[in-house]
Design a protein around this nucleic acid. Structure first.
Length: 829
DNA sequence: AGCACGCCGACT
DNA sequence: GTCGGCGTGCTC
């Protein structure tokens, strides 16, 4: 496992050199550099310590990853400059995790370290320039010398870096002046995040000292005496601003008390708490059903055992997985170990956070992308300092710096939000399983519709599987009807609602029940076409058909990938004819149609266009919950984790929107989506009904979803994947060559393909899919070509892949573009 | 990545 | 003649 490096050691043991990974993201410096440890810093350096080091002509941030007694380059070593934190941000297991990440996902160690630390954690070296000996010569206005001196007199607080970015031409002059002693450099460090402090007041006086103090204070200073007595009676240190508010004192009152030493003022570090304003009613563990208890016992046994394990918890929607999670975590924490709970799109599922806060109170930290950088950093420090035992968060929370992890739960594990979209493109499930080996921890993968790979591993006996096939309250799964829209058309119904759906909506509205309508496409129409010449409006940058939007009377065409927008043309830009029309159906159009067919209906529409505001999401859902509207209409964002007691009908306007994407997971996604949407109906007392409209109702993904038969879908899909050499039988790695110049992008992709064919071509466990335009062939003005590699096992092919990738990355940059890699790609775009 | 050093075209 | 373009090479 440690085929890494020379004799790097974890403990310093008097070793002379620190091995440092520098924060420079370039493959050419992706290796440890040796630095001498100055005796002044000797006590403060550990594995994982963040340091400032000299690197060439500049100073950069770096992380200590090991120590060694010797170095091959003694003549080159320089000393460490500074230790940047009191506690090392990385624990030794995180250093090891970073190394693994960089090898598995082919990124630099520096990039891996950044992925697993909060974004605010970045320091920048700064340098100030002071005039030490004014030069003898007199300079003419307009000369560099004159201008630089002017600038230094006028803005002495500008850093050297600021100065150089504004006037790069001053660089040589500054250097010579520093050498000649005209200027002096003062070095500093600017931290990315301010640690937030609050001022506290306290008095350390005993009762008799207090008496003496009160006597000493002039009788005219009534406020001072009051303040001092107040603080004495409190005993504890109090927040200064509260004290001022309570006693009416001010800093004028306080000042003499501080000077005489009667009162002590101190700044204490505080953590920004994103949930400080919310109150959570404590909740108690609920009694478990036999099925829940079985799942709970399985997880508990795994946590108790001293071996890493992975368990697939396959439970239908409404089977009570959350309560199992909560109690398993409680059991883990009771053992003195910590737990991580991952949820997809946490900002969409505030209920989950709420349930954790109610059950565990302050023991929970929350990490997700909607927190400010400062809030994230503070939650991270609460974890690092052992103030909490539980983290609930999105994907990156899997890196929580706990000391001893017992349990990691990934809820809705099949969701693709668990694959990081930017570099390194890690898969949370894989990271969890690696950390499980480090900590001898248990991973629970929870889902009603597991990713095919996960279910396959369970089938192979590689991981355990526990089922929860029934709903907690014993409700039946809702009845799902699939309606063939071709029949509707034949019988003369040209509207987007089948007769059954229309009647269904009418009935619910009469009974005062609620309806959810689902369509996986926003906007009004799908595309815009000229009926005379066949012209289709496309984004000039992405070449994707533009979507027709209607907003406040304004007719717009928008690109859903880059956000580009233009006005709907009145005549065809190509043939000048006036037969430009929009086709296809989006959420906006459904909304308009709903108001036509049901004039009394109140509809809430939820899609990217209506939920841009900070709390728009929660607000819209809250309004629906309170019954302000009978119909909730939305894209897949409404499919996730919602639970409305009054909803008895769920309608899917068109089941195939996700079926014909050029993606090997299209059937799986469609099945998962339909199953999930169906699970929304009738979760409480009222029975639920689901109506799925489709032009292709016999498709197996739709048929199996209709009866919620995951196992049958699994069997069918596994065969399909096998015959096409797709996951889980082969793993996919995708390279994308991106360039504004189409020929350059293509050339680079071809070159890469050649290289891969030469190194891997002969193997029968590797399939190379040649260069092809990416499904998103042009994005934001840049052409994209893919080279996709399929292989059975990553290890034997990782070296050739790495070499080809590194060789051509530089090449791509020379051509003005770039090359990305997605190891174990979940989707090819 | 940055920054320095080094070798070729248009300019006070 | 020089200033400054960016190709090449190195960073403990």
């Amino acid at each position: 496992m440690n085929a890494h490096d020379n004799a790097a050691v974890t403990e310093r043991n008097g070793a002379r050199y620190a091995e440092v990974i520098v924060e420079v993201k370039s493959a050419s410096v992706d290796r440890p550099f040796h630095y001498e440890i100055p005796s002044l810093l000797a006590e403060r350096v550990h594995v994982g310590t963040r340091v400032l080091v000299p690197f060439g002509p500049r100073r950069v941030e770096g992380y200590i990853v090991g120590f060694s007694a010797t170095t091959e380059v003694p003549e080159k070593t320089k000393p460490l400059l500074e230790v940047l934190d009191d506690d090392p941000p990385l624990t030794p297991d995180l250093v090891e995790l970073a190394r693994w990440l960089s090898e598995r996902y082919l990124c630099t160690k520096a990039a891996a370290v950044q992925a697993l630390l909060p974004s605010g954690m970045r320091a920048k070296a700064t340098t100030f320039l002071r005039i030490q000996n004014a030069p003898d010569s007199v300079y003419l206005p307009g000369s560099w010398e004159y201008d630089l001196l002017q600038e230094l007199y006028q803005s002495p607080n500008k850093t050297k870096e600021q100065l150089l970015s504004e006037h790069p031409e001053w660089r040589p002059l500054i250097r010579t002046w520093v050498e000649e002693g005209v200027l002096q450099e003062l070095h500093g460090v600017k931290h990315g995040i301010q640690i937030k402090t609050m001022t506290y007041l306290s008095t350390g006086l005993t009762e008799s000292e207090l008496q003496g103090a009160l006597d000493e204070i002039s009788n005219r200073a009534k406020k001072q005496k009051e303040l001092l007595t107040y603080l004495y009676e409190a005993g504890d240190a109090l927040l200064m601003k509260d004290v001022f508010a309570e006693t009416g004192a001010s800093s004028a009152t306080l000042k003499p008390l501080l000077e005489k030493g009667f009162v002590v003022k101190e700044d204490r570090e505080v953590h920004r708490d994103p949930y400080a304003s919310k109150h959570f009613e404590p909740s108690q563990p609920l009694p478990l059903t036999p099925m829940q208890d079985n799942a709970y016992q399985t997880i508990k046994n795994a946590v108790d055992s001293d071996a890493p394990q992975t368990i697939l918890l396959q439970g239908v929607t409404g089977s009570g997985k959350t309560e199992v999670y909560l109690q398993s975590i409680a059991a883990c924490v009771a053992q003195g170990r910590q737990a991580i709970m991952l949820v997809p799109e946490i900002s969409l599922t505030p209920q989950m956070v709420e349930q954790f806060k109610k059950r565990f109170g302050d023991e929970v930290a929350v990490l997700h992308s909607r927190l400010s950088t400062g809030e994230k950093y503070d939650e991270w420090r609460r974890i690092r300092h052992g103030e909490v035992n539980i983290v609930v968060g999105a994907r990156s929370a899997i890196f929580a710096p706990f000391r001893s992890i017992g349990l990691m739960i990934i809820d809705e594990e099949h969701e693709n939000s668990y694959k990081q979209d930017d570099h390194p493109k890690y898969l949370a499930r894989e990271v969890a399983m690696y950390r499980a080996r480090q900590h001898k921890a248990t991973v629970v993968l929870g889902s009603a519709t597991p990713a095919l790979e996960t279910r396959w591993w369970a089938h192979q006996g590689i991981i355990q599987r526990v089922e929860m096939p029934e709903r907690v309250r014993g409700q039946k799964l809702p009845k799902v009807r699939v309606l063939d829209m071709r029949n509707e058309l034949q019988s003369g119904n040209r509207s987007m609602f089948s007769n059954a759906l229309k009647t269904g909506i009418e009935e619910r509205m009469e009974r005062g029940e609620q309806i959810i309508l689902f369509l996986n496409r926003r906007g009004f129409a799908t595309f815009v076409l000229c009926r005379s010449c066949g012209f289709v409006a496309r984004c000039q940058d992405c070449e994707i058909p533009l979507t027709y939007h209607k907003a406040r009377g304004l007719e717009q065409l928008r690109c859903h990938y880059c956000g580009y927008a233009e006005r709907m043309p009145e005549t065809c830009p190509d043939c000048q004819g006036d037969h430009v029309r929009h086709f296809g159906t989006g959420t906006q159009r459904v909304e308009e149609e709903l108001y036509k067919v049901f004039p009394d209906a109140k509809v809430i529409r939820m899609d990217v266009d209506t939920t841009s505001g900070k709390d728009a999401h929660a607000t819209l859902l809250q309004r629906f919950r309170q019954g302000e509207a009978q119909i909730l209409l939305g894209t897949q964002m409404i499919a996730k984790g919602l639970d409305f007691p009054n909803v008895t009908l769920v309608g899917v306007i068109s089941a195939e929107t996700s079926l014909y994407l050029p993606d090997f997971r299209a059937a799986e996604r469609t099945f998962q989506l339909l199953t999930q949407v169906a699970g929304r109906a009738g979760r409480h007392e009222l029975p639920g009904e689901v109506i799925v409209q489709s032009y292709n109702p016999q498709h197996y993904a739709i048929q199996f979803a209709k009866d919620q038969e995951y196992e049958k879908f699994f069997e069918h899909e596994v065969r399909h994947r096998y015959s096409l050499n797709n996951p889980p039988f082969f793993e996919l790695t995708a390279f994308t060559s991106v360039n504004e110049d189409e020929m350059k992008a293509l050339h680079l992709a071809r070159h890469l393909e050649d290289l891969l064919r030469r190194s891997l071509g002969g193997r029968d466990d590797v399939i190379i899919l040649g260069t092809s335009p990416a499904p998103l062939a042009r994005l934001q003005g840049k052409y994209r070509f893919n080279v996709v590699l399929k292989y059975k096992k990553f290890k034997p092919v990782s070296k050739p892949i790495r070499e080809a990738y590194q060789a051509l990355q530089g090449e791509a940059q020379k051509l003005g573009g770039y090359l990305t890699i997605d190891v174990n790609a979940q989707m090819i775009l």
